[in-house]
């Protein structure tokens, strides 16, 4: 992290090739490694949780079932009857982001959701999926949604560009929301942690005052645990809302 008295809060977001020149050729950095770890953790959690397959679940199984039912309820309640078909996708999306956010909170780890390339790719995937589903279920009537019902035809030249713009800005807002939240949280961590290191250079007085930034970082950790799950939830629920609009006739 920060070396000496200089603070470089962005260093933590740098990508480094793994496996030497092979990784460089495959464009393999630590980020995909953490994605694999996140995915494996989620799968292991579900596998071990559901391994007893007991009628009366234990703690881990109950946790796995709660995760399943939480996303299932969200998908079916928001999207409607067709929600069951999109449930695995929403589940994948939610836990991919949640695991990425939470793994990033571990010391010395990397947060792949703090990269706009990753979050924008996820948002674009949701956007393309919703457009494809819209065209599939509504056909060309999909384009009628860009003219709000009941609006005066004279306003059409104004309203249609606005509607199109707001539709196209969905993946941007979706991706930047997650990216900015993650970056901000980790920058704050880094700043306050650097304060501790800097205060350590002032001897005993510094040691005493260093308690402040440490306390703030503890509080920040609680906040980031909340933000991590909240952002994953927001991403998933907005995906559900877009898909509901797509399947609505």
């Amino acid at each position: 992290m920060a070396g000496g008295s200089s603070i470089n809060v962005l260093e933590q977001f740098e990508l480094h090739p793994v496996l030497g020149s092979l990784g460089e050729a495959l464009r393999l950095s630590q980020s995909p490694i953490y994605m694999v770890v996140a995915v494996c953790l989620v799968l292991a959690f579900l596998y071990l949780g559901m391994k007893p397959a007991a009628v009366v679940p234990g703690r881990l199984q109950a946790a796995a079932e709660v995760c399943y039912e939480f996303i299932h309820t969200m998908a079916v309640d928001t999207i409607g009857a067709e929600g069951a078909a999109f449930f695995p996708f929403v589940f994948t999306l939610f836990f991919f982001i949640l695991a990425g956010n939470y793994i990033g909170l571990l010391p010395f780890s990397f947060t792949f959701t703090s990269h706009i390339a990753v979050t924008f790719a996820l948002a674009l995937m949701v956007f393309v999926l919703s457009v494809v589903v819209s065209l599939k279920s509504q056909g060309l009537r999909f384009f009628a949604h860009f003219m709000p019902d009941g609006a005066s035809p004279f306003l059409a030249p104004l309203l249609i560009p606005i509607e199109i713009l707001s539709f196209l800005s969905r993946p941007v807002s979706l991706s930047i929301r997650l990216f900015a939240n993650m970056v901000a949280g980790h920058v704050m961590f880094d700043i306050f942690a650097s304060f501790v290191v800097m205060l350590a250079g002032f001897g005993v007085v510094g040691d005493v005052f260093a308690i402040g930034p440490i306390a703030i970082n503890v509080a920040l950790m609680a906040l980031e645990l909340l933000v991590g799950v909240l952002q994953a939830y927001v991403f998933a629920i907005l995906t559900c809302i877009y898909l509901r609009e797509a399947v609505a006739h």
Binding site: L15, P17, R27, L28, S29, P32
Partner: peptide, 22 residues
């Protein structure tokens, strides 16, 4: 190339994740 590389890898990992889950 590592920044865009994560998108490629991420797509593959996400797809595998989706398939295993679903």
């Amino acid at each position: 190339p590592l920044v865009t590389g994560q998108v490629m890898w991420g797509a593959v990992i996400f797809l595998v994740f989706y398939l295993v889950l679903s």
